[in-house]
Amino acid sequence: MNDISDAFAAAFAMVAGFDKDLAEIVGLSLEVSLSAVFIAAVIGLPLGAATALFRFPGRKVIIVLLNAFMGLPPVVVGLIVYLLLSRAGPFGVLGLLFTPTAMIIAQVILVTPIIASLTRQVIEDLWREYEEQMRSLGAGPVRSLTALLWDARFSLLTAILAGFGRASAEVGAVMIVGGNIDHATRVMTTAIALEVSRGDLALALGLGLILLVLSTCVNGAAFLIRDAAQKRHA
């Protein structure tokens, strides 16, 4: 019980004191996760929509793989990205290992399949409804695809949020490729892991509470946007 009340006290003290180190960690967490989600959305939305719309050889394989990759273990992804970016790896010359960029790359790999799979499902359902009308109007593949993505934008926001949830919560990948270096690659989840192994459970839990509040805020904001927009467009 003490740990939990201490955690609240620690969390409150950190926020109230506006600890500079904390602000840095929170800032980097948001930067890495939001960048990763943005890039994953740029890749995943069209990819998911394309697998919903077009019939091409290998389509089913891609669908199964995307679905399977929704559950990729972060440590495995971290390890693969580590091997690719390490000095001896193929992209070693870029010197990206243990930088925020490496963390973003790892998270893009984790998040893209989630966004692409959920997008495919949403767009497939909408396409079933729209297909004849689109073909009747003479809409080509690109126009159909963009129209579907636009019309499904409220449902797709949920897909993107699922991706954000994954990115902001995972620790395995960013730990391996980022290295949890203070003032360089330390993010909320790796800081929590560190404090746990150090035995400062109250501080770890305090950080955890802040992370929870942050992700609730992001989801709440998205909900409000969606709700307001949906009332206007149904």
């Binding site: 409804e129 729209y130 004849e132 009308q133 009747s136 109007l137 129209a147 019309d151 499904a152 467009h233 149904a234």
Partner: peptide, 21 residues
């Protein structure tokens, strides 16, 4: 052009539905 038994409406405003076509 074709009009279907069940009208297929884009999730947009009335004017935007015509505009799209």
């Amino acid at each position: 052009a074709m009009v279907f038994q069940r009208p297929i409406m884009l999730r947009r405003s009335v004017a935007a539905n015509v505009d799209f076509a």
